[in-house]
Computed example of a mutant assay.
Amino acid sequence: MLCADQNFDIAQVIRFFRSEPGELIIYYELEESEKSSSRGIVEVSPDTHRVTRFLEKPQDRLTASRLASVVFYCLQRDTLSHLSDFLRLQPQASFGRFWEWLVNEKQLDVFGMKLPTGFQLIGQVGLSDYTKWLTHYSTKQQDNPAKPITYRSFARVGLMGNPSDGFNGKTIAMSISNFWAEVTLVESQTLVLVPHPLNDPTEFGSLQDLFCISRKEGYLGGLRLLQATCKKFYQFCSKQGIALTKQNFTLKYDTNIPRQVGLAGSSAIVSATLKCLMKFYNITDNDLPKPIRANFILNVETDELFITAGLQDRVVQVYEGLVYMDFSKNLMAEQGYGNYVSMDMSVLPHFWLAYLSDPSDSGRIHSNIRQRWLSGESSYGK
């Protein structure tokens, strides 16, 4: 087996294997040029990660799955005895046939973990094949050095229903391109989070400068958002059965979104960081669909950083443009997210956006609204 990135996190694979009550198959998504008839193909439940069917080099149209085994398996000790039983039945069969028998006939609990990368060599290959591909990768890296990955996420304005996203209501909101958070990721030897010179200052011209900057900007800059997003991303991929390659990177951010005025500046940084991580690790929309992505961004802020927030801002920053959102209780309970519909922004009139240059803490103002709503308070006076 030769991975296109030549390296992936074995420790993450072992942790996932130990967390599931069964065997483990590593798989990847076939490229367009690859035929399923040349690989062992797996069908995997997206909810449980259980391998529901294994087909060794299937004929065309026998399965719609494009998920291929990479001949990397983890077996429980007690399962090894099945190998002897299988060889008595099929002494000349391949190892792929053994897994086909385990999954389809014995119906053992077998789970799948995805590697979001390509593979060139699988199965019985010679040393010359490995040498050729290693030379190819080395030349490719020299000729094509890693380019920076940069993404923006935009501020948002709530038009109707705000803040009923936290109370099973309906809202309409839109993103505004005037204000944005931009994150840049570039591959590096070690993982580095670069402080923003204004939002995460570590040097000051004087004690008075420290006083003025701290009074206006506070103590909670964007660096914590980068770190929390990275931590949650690794945790999400591990839980979802996605084995990441062992690559390091440097992250830096910039933003012109006014602070503490309710324009979703924090979630914009998280959203842009997530876009960079997905691109860097080849995580697709199928791996992390848009509705789940909005939940992810919210969880970074609420679970990791204890920021009071709702889904509306994150949904708009994921979908962008003008979005109608229904957060009804039944929808949230059944599917874990609401109903989100993109709308035509051309029907809107022109808007003027006004905000204070020296605002109070918007998060502190909203911090107890949900608790007051849950306790049955009917009106919210100042």
Score class of each variant (00 low, 15 high):
residue 215 R to F: 04
residue 36 S to I: 15
residue 224 R to G: 07
residue 360 S to V: 10
residue 232 K to M: 10
residue 114 K to G: 06
residue 98 F to C: 04
residue 190 T to K: 12
residue 4 A to R: 06
residue 354 A to F: 15
residue 119 F to K: 00
residue 143 D to E: 14
residue 294 A to E: 02
residue 100 E to V: 00
residue 372 R to P: 05
residue 228 A to Q: 03
residue 13 V to R: 03
residue 123 G to T: 06
residue 86 F to K: 00
residue 155 A to L: 05
residue 165 D to N: 02
residue 191 L to Y: 01
residue 278 M to H: 02
residue 205 G to H: 12
residue 51 V to C: 08
residue 7 N to V: 14
residue 124 Q to L: 11
residue 302 T to A: 15
residue 381 G to V: 08
residue 306 F to I: 00
residue 4 A to W: 08
residue 139 T to N: 12
residue 374 L to G: 00
residue 109 D to L: 10
residue 42 V to N: 06
residue 170 K to D: 07
residue 318 V to D: 01
residue 261 V to R: 01
residue 226 L to D: 06
residue 300 V to Y: 09
residue 81 S to T: 15
residue 368 N to D: 13
residue 30 L to S: 02
residue 106 K to N: 10
residue 144 N to Q: 10
residue 59 Q to M: 11
residue 156 R to M: 08
residue 233 F to A: 04
residue 95 F to L: 14
residue 163 P to G: 11
residue 83 L to K: 00
residue 24 L to A: 08
residue 352 W to F: 09
residue 378 S to P: 10
residue 161 G to Y: 02
residue 101 W to A: 01
residue 349 P to T: 08
residue 6 Q to N: 06
residue 206 S to Q: 09
residue 318 V to E: 01
residue 215 R to K: 14
residue 360 S to R: 11
residue 332 M to W: 04
residue 296 F to D: 06
residue 275 K to T: 03
residue 141 Q to E: 11
residue 51 V to W: 09
residue 290 K to Q: 15
residue 328 S to G: 13
residue 309 A to T: 00
residue 331 L to K: 10
residue 203 E to A: 12
residue 251 L to C: 06
residue 237 C to V: 01
residue 31 E to I: 14
residue 32 E to P: 11
residue 243 A to M: 10
residue 263 L to I: 00
residue 171 T to Q: 02
residue 325 M to L: 05
residue 214 S to M: 05
residue 14 I to W: 13
residue 54 F to W: 02
residue 80 L to A: 08
residue 288 L to Y: 10
residue 373 W to R: 04
residue 297 I to A: 03
residue 240 Q to I: 02
residue 292 I to D: 11
residue 347 V to Q: 12
residue 186 V to I: 14
residue 102 L to Y: 02
